[in-house]
Amino acid sequence: MKYEEFLKHVESVAQLNSREEAERATRATLETIKERIVGNEANHLAAQLPEELAGYLRGREGESGQAFSIKDFISRVGEKENVDPTAAVIHIRSVFTVLQDAITPGEFVDFQHNFSEDYAELFPPSSEITA
């Protein structure tokens, strides 16, 4: 999936008003994913995304992910994006939904395994976390 297509899908799924809003939502979510998951897993995810998005996931190679709650994940995205928690949840869900379409099914499963079951509400309904 190309960069512009990814952003267009995020904008549509989240019902945002502009490409710029979709860029902010995507960047905030991917940067928070980078903080949360193991660095090498972030690199695997980055390898399947356009370079403009992949950069948000790189830079923690060989590091462990930070263990923080779903509430903290939502808060971090909201702070980065400067939106309230309700909007942050919608944006995270939208980015996760587009990610599911943008990467291979196996990589999406690997990505999900970085999150505990309490994160399930952020993932598309058709996917299941079986950690």
Rank of each mutant, 00 (worst) to 15 (best):
N82Y: 07
L53I: 03
A87R: 15
T86F: 03
V77N: 15
G78V: 01
E51H: 01
A87G: 02
D84R: 15
R60I: 01
G59S: 06
L57P: 13
A88L: 05
Q66N: 12
H44Q: 11
G59A: 11
G78N: 06
Y56Q: 09
Q48P: 03
N43H: 14
G55H: 01
G55N: 06
S75Q: 15
E61R: 14
F73A: 00
L49W: 10
L57T: 05
S69V: 03
R60W: 01
A54L: 09
G55E: 05
E52N: 09
K71D: 11
K71L: 10
E52V: 01
E81K: 08
V98N: 01
D72N: 07
S94M: 01
G78S: 03
N43P: 06
F73I: 00
S64N: 01
V89M: 07
G62F: 12
L57R: 11
F68M: 12
E61N: 04
A54F: 05
P50A: 07
V95F: 13
L49P: 10
E61S: 13
A54W: 09
K80E: 10
E52Q: 15
R60V: 06
L57S: 07
T86R: 15
E79D: 14
Q66L: 06
V95G: 09
F96E: 00
I70R: 15
D84C: 04
V95E: 04
E61K: 13
E52G: 04
A67K: 12
V77R: 13
E52F: 02
F96I: 00
N82L: 05
I74E: 02
Q48E: 15
G78K: 04
E52T: 02
A67P: 10
H44P: 00
E81N: 12
I92P: 08
S69Q: 09
A46H: 06
E52P: 04
L49C: 12
R93Q: 11
N82C: 02
L57F: 04
S69M: 04
S94A: 14
D84S: 13
A87H: 07
R60Y: 06
G65K: 06
L45R: 12
R60E: 07
